[in-house]
Design a protein around this nucleic acid. Sequence first.
DNA 1: TAGAAGTTTCAGAGAGTTTTGAAACTTAGC
DNA 2: GCTAAGTTTCAAAACTCTCTGAAACTTCTA
Lengths: 191, 191
Amino acid sequence: MPPRATPDMNGGMGPKEQERELVHEAADAVGALMEFWGFKRVMGRVWALLYLRGEALPASDLCEQLSISSGAASMALAELEHWAVVRRIRRPGDRREYFEAETDVWRMISRVLRERELTQIERSLEVFERVRDKLRSLPLPGERGRLEEIAERLGKMVDLARVGRGLLVALVQQGRVDLGPLMRFARPRRA
Amino acid sequence: MPPRATPDMNGGMGPKEQERELVHEAADAVGALMEFWGFKRVMGRVWALLYLRGEALPASDLCEQLSISSGAASMALAELEHWAVVRRIRRPGDRREYFEAETDVWRMISRVLRERELTQIERSLEVFERVRDKLRSLPLPGERGRLEEIAERLGKMVDLARVGRGLLVALVQQGRVDLGPLMRFARPRRA
DNA sequence: TAGAAGTTTCAGAGAGTTTTGAAACTTAGC
DNA sequence: GCTAAGTTTCAAAACTCTCTGAAACTTCTA
């Protein structure tokens, strides 16, 4: 059987360009993931580029490599910093600021889970409970039954929200320090 | 101690209007939750209204109650049907179609987790693995070390994606039939 | 303190998403 | 098959979110 070309026929690129392409591909995947999670796509691309390169880069490099304006970079970096996902570094003798990715990915994620998803769920939970209780106290004599049914359905939503909250809390507790304790969930392949 | 006015001073509404208001409030909370999850806000409002009312309603009622156009209602309902979250019902002798909420909330959620979140994570996982392996096979003799570092960081993202996938799978397996087995996570109050 | 390099801000452009409303289509009953 | 009630489709409007790029601002060096 004669050797045949690799299925990706690397488009006449040298290894250097291929590396760049590959890193960008991964960064775009992170961008998509972050967007799916309700963040801005650029944030994911910026963080991933910094993380994969493994060194601190100045904003200008990010603009160039990701083809974004300085404004977009500045905004993405500010927001990433707010989530403690990127750090700002000054180097003596260099006027530029350098940006470095937080490498503890689990810490990033659990922070988002705690601050964003948990808050969101608490907020809904409060509404459900309050509405349920108020409905029960409504003076509609002929319709006790109907009202109580609605209140019970709200009760189910309360249960669900509590389960969601409980799962989230258990998750961030479990992996309090790092991903380690959660690694048992990482089966190698689909099944 | 004299009885005092309730803290919400129900704005001069009769109980009927209050009920309506309260149901809308809960529906809006579901709308916000759904939006947060990447669906359209209206979808959440429609489902919640149907779920809480507990009876099948014709589209015209939904338009009126939620103040949306027939077009918006039609689109939201079609999408909700696609997620099997709302069912369409015909009644003999009535030309209208009635819509009814799926009441098994866990089934809805686990379906979304399986079809959407899991797919999303698989897709990223594949990219990470492929890029990692290709990087390792790149002929850049002087930079073995640097390339390997990038590959290792990609390896961490692979691990993370696998943990995410594993958790999701465990979650939908665990609550395969209904919420029951997950209820142990529903602690009654914050802690 | 002046000047240069770098960063942030923000108004407007652009892209993308959701909603409307009316026309086209479907269905049930006659 | 025709009609009327109801539903879907879809182009345009309204709205929202993101990005650009230049001006304002900050910071470092000398």
